[in-house]
Structures are given as C-alpha cells and as structure tokens.
Design a protein around this nucleic acid. Structure first.
Lengths: 145, 145
DNA sequence: TCTTGACATAAAGTCAGGTTTAGGTATTAC
DNA sequence: GTAATACCTAAACCTGACTTTATGTCAAGA
C-alpha cells in the first residue's frame, strides 16, 4: 500500500492531479484509512491504464466510463474490448498524421539549411514545387498531399 | 486571391478560427481591400505551416514568433531552422511514446479477447506478469517498461 | 426598396484539465 | 508543547484555443 505522496513520486504526477483523478471517479476501488487514501497495486495498474488512454486521446470522463465498466464485472468485457480497439485505431491514425507532419518538418529543415548556404530563398523558390532533389521531393510531396 | 469564406472551405476551418489566427499575428502579410481580408498563396502556405507546427505541439504564440522571424528576413534563417529541428525531434519522441501506447492498447485488446473467450479474467491474471504467449509478452513488456 | 448573405469588430463566453488557496486534522521530530 | 510534514476538502482560479454574441457595413438580387 502506498500513500498519495509515494504514488506522486513513482509516477511523476503532482499530488493535486491524483486527487483530481480520484474526485473524477478514476479510482473506483480506492480505500481509505481514517480519511487517508491508500493506493494498492490495483490503483497503480489503473493509473497505468489512465495514462495509456489519455495518451490515446481519451477524455477524463470517458476514462471514468471505462472504470465504471470495470466495476460492473464480466458483462462489460465487450464494451471494454471495443474501447481499446477503437483507441488502437485512433492511435494508428494519429501516427500516420504525425508521419506526414514529420515529413513536412524534415523538408523545412532541408529548406532552411539550403537557404542558409545560399544566403537567400530565391534559388529555392525557383525549384518549387517540383524541381527538388529526389529525396527532398518525396518529403515535399508527402507533406503537401 | 481568396476570401476568408473560401479559405475556410479549402482548409475545413471555421471562419472564426481564421480571424482568430489573424488577430494573433499569424498572417503578417495579410492584405485587405476596404477592410476585407484577401488571402493570397502566401497566406495559404502560412496556413500549411501553421497546421504543421500546431500538430508538432507548438503553441500559437510560438508560431507567431516564427512568423515574426519570417518578416525579419534572411538574418533569422538560423532561428527558423533551429525551430524546425527542435519540432522534428519533439515529433520523433512523440511517435516513440505513441508506439508504446499502441503496444499497451494491443495488449489490452488481446487481454479482453481472451477474457471473453474464458468468461473471466482469472486464468489471465495467473499468467501475468511473465507467462504470456511470446508475441503478447513483447507487447506487455514494451507497455510496462 | 428591402432583405439576404458575406464580411467586419470587440468583448464575453466556453471547455478541458488541471492548480491554487484557504482552512483543517493527525503524526512525528525536537 | 510546539513546529514541521503529510494528509484532507471545497471552492476558486488559471490557461490555451477557440467560439459566440452583439452590433455594424456593404453589395447583389427580387
């Protein structure tokens, strides 16, 4: 069993955030001893899931819904599975979007590197949109698709 | 030249958002005719860069700083390049984090699939943390690292 | 003419996800 | 015994990124 302060250190989260999550219903099994929260392994695993779902783009209230399903028992396995499937898809789509963003950033890095070498953007702008070196053209096309 | 309404349709952004960006200084070269904004190719390219930098995690005021550098001319090429380099790194790190998140989500999908087949999580919890099928163990370890 | 639609501004409102504050309790350290 | 810590609550506050509202201008079509 851990105190809120210990969990705060373990997860690098402010104590206020943990209390906020608790208030929002994200630790449905949280125990207390004379008013003081006692985090068990169950709450630590909940916190790992919370962080995962948050990174997947889920809002707090939807995470709360998930925790409510956990309390309801095996009858909600299908809902829980569907949630993870849909978050998996969302993250896969996000990674594709980020790859395009990355291509644009790489292109811009090359662009300014070249502009610095040339002293101006003039020669560069003559090469746009389709007389770039092949490697760079790929980035440009990916980013402007 | 395009009206704000046309640009709104082209980029699937509300008119109010475009006006907000303008107010925040994100279109330093924006022209007007009798008070009405006229978006040129320059503003469209600015908007592409804005979307890219936003997706990379930059705040509006930092994007505004970038636009200010653009107005300053070639002397700020190094600052602009450094910005793109640092956003590139940030996005690469974000993609690594998302990969871990994805592994966790995939693990949870398998977990609930199995729980549904078994009718309970009991057998599953006996397998944790290191008696899982090899494929799944990889996901679990990646997610809990 | 009159009304409809696209444009404009300034200022207030919204929302999520916390954080801070004010006030209190309980345990330990000196 | 008192001072420092770690904990507690409720409620107010904060921030970023928009959005909405209230009010007004202007050109084109019926």
């Amino acid at each position: 069993m851990y105190s809120i302060g210990q969990v705060s250190e373990m997860f690098h989260l402010p104590v206020s955030t943990l209390r906020y999550y608790d208030k929002e219903g994200l630790f449905p099994y949280m125990e207390r001893r004379s008013g003081i929260r006692r985090f068990s392994e169950r709450e630590l695993e909940a916190l790992r899931v919370i962080e995962c779902l948050k990174k997947s783009g889920l809002e707090i209230k939807e995470i709360k819904q998930f925790m409510a399903w956990c309390v309801e028992g095996p009858a909600t396995y299908p809902e829980r599975k569907a949630l993870f499937e849909s978050r998996k898809q969302a993250v896969e789509e996000e990674m594709l979007r980020l790859q395009k963003t990355l291509d644009m950033l790489k292109f811009k890095c090359w662009y300014y590197e070249t502009a610095i070498r040339d002293g101006s953007e003039d020669r560069l702008n003559e090469m746009l949109p389709d007389h770039l070196p092949p490697e760079i053209q790929k980035l440009y096309d990916s980013a402007h698709a």
